[in-house]
């Protein structure tokens, strides 16, 4: 068997292992998906009426706010799942089984690819749930099939980047607690970007941060594809941030996994 097909086979085995974990202990997944759904309902039904009026375009009110906030909540869901990934990786590394894997003649990267692919599936599940709830409470999109696929592609890219980054965080963490604390800021980034309100309503310093942080171009690209707003340079920004974060996350994770005590 060639090195490549060996890596693929071992990685598939590791993905199956992670999926078994998730299916046997679904509470973590449900918790990770539940949080963004609660935020969606909270923002639409509690703050939505007022916030929608402040958007300053269209009819205003709750119905307009559902459309505005859904891309932000989707990104929040991705960040929440990524946080769970860091915790799962860190828990796994504390088990003796990973030391066993390292003494076996298997593709070394497969333990990590198992985590990455399983986390991507978990993200996909979370995003589908969030979008379904959003549709149920009045979200409508005028996107065609190509635009939906493009949106899925942008999300997959960014999820891939966040996953590698949080896999690395999980490896870097010395305790489970620090593994859950390290990626916490990611969950707040949609709030400190264009996820919940337009950035031009923010004070100067915060606005500068909100405009230049990675979540904003991804959210704006998503809005453009699903709601038909202008995308501009955000598309390039989303791709560049995804590629950059994925590369850094991957290299960091690989270095940590191969480190020798």
């Amino acid at each position: 068997m060639s090195t490549m097909s060996l890596a693929l086979r071992d990685s598939t085995t590791m993905v199956r292992r992670r999926i078994k974990h998730m299916r046997r202990y679904p509470s973590l997944t449900l918790q990770l998906v539940g949080l963004p759904v609660v935020f969606l309902l909270l923002f639409v039904y509690v703050f939505g009426g007022t916030l929608g009026n402040g958007l300053g375009s269209g009819p205003g009110g709750r119905s307009e706010y559902v459309a505005y906030v859904t891309p932000g909540i989707i990104l929040m869901a991705m960040a929440t799942v990524a946080m769970g990934t860091a915790v799962s990786v860190s828990m796994d590394m504390m088990e003796g089984i990973v030391a066993r894997f390292k003494t076996m003649a298997i593709a070394r990267v497969s333990v990590l690819t198992g985590h990455v692919v399983a986390a991507m599936l978990q993200t996909f599940f979370a995003v589908v749930v969030v979008v379904a709830v959003a549709f149920a409470i009045g979200f409508r999109s005028d996107a065609n099939v190509v635009e939906w696929f493009a949106a899925a592609g942008v999300l997959a890219m960014f999820a891939f980047a966040l996953t590698w980054l949080t896999v690395a965080m999980g490896l870097a963490a010395k305790t489970i607690d620090s593994a859950s604390n390290m990626p916490q800021p990611l969950v707040f980034l949609p709030l400190l970007g264009s996820g919940f309100v337009p950035t031009d309503s923010m004070p100067a310093g915060l606005r500068w941060f909100a405009d230049y942080q990675p979540f904003t171009p991804v959210i704006e690209t998503l809005r453009g594809l699903l709601l038909g707003t202008g995308i501009g340079a955000n598309g390039i920004g989303a791709v560049a941030w995804s590629a950059g974060i994925a590369l850094i996350g991957y290299l960091w994770a690989r270095k940590l996994y191969n480190r020798q005590a």
Binding site: H21, G96, I97, A99
Partner: peptide, 30 residues
């Protein structure tokens, strides 16, 4: 690695899987 087997002082089993699943995991990895 292909020639050795290791059992350490801290158990190297996947505690989230069943005993049988652990063995099948090893079979797949071999």
């Amino acid at each position: 690695r292909a020639a050795i087997g290791v059992t350490g002082q801290f158990s190297a089993v996947d505690k989230l899987l069943t005993g049988e699943e652990n063995l099948l995991l090893m079979a797949d990895l071999h």
